[in-house]
Amino acid sequence: MASNEAIPTWEQVATDYGRVIYNFAYRLTGNRDDASDLAQEVLVRVRRGLATYRPGSFEGWLWRITRNAFLDEVRRKQRRPTTELPAEDRSALVTSPTPDDVLAETRLSDEMQAALLNLPYEFREAVVMCDVVGLTYQEIADAAEVPVGTVRSRIHRGRLMLRDALEAG
């Protein structure tokens, strides 16, 4: 958005970005409950943050909020390890989808989802932001607050790790 952008209401953000935020969250977490919680938390933060938001890079601002919400959630769960499934069991969440999921997802996408969940976070985030959300490298760099060269490296290495995981699986 340009600097003379009209600041949206949070309801407009929910309408315009809700689905892509939810899909970002789903691909990062691998399950609908966490994705719903995370997407709702993002919208709560957007609602609070819009009061002090100043026109600039709205998408950069939005995706910084989104990734920070996700990282906060990861940290919160790490403080309560008994509620976190072991990493090796998380693939069960995507290989045993709910009936609703079955209609929408193929075996290939389940394998890809399982491979995504095994990527280290910074690679998973970069790949999902690029290939699921559709952000440019610069937009990802703004959101993750890292140089563009780092984003380029993470995307490529992330894709190579996914390739290796899919070939091994």
């Binding site: 689905r19 929408a104 890809m112 290939d131 699921v132």
Partner: peptide
């Protein structure tokens, strides 16, 4: 990755 199905909210 780009062919992953869109999950409805």
């Amino acid at each position: 990755l780009r062919s992953l199905p869109v999950v409805e909210v």
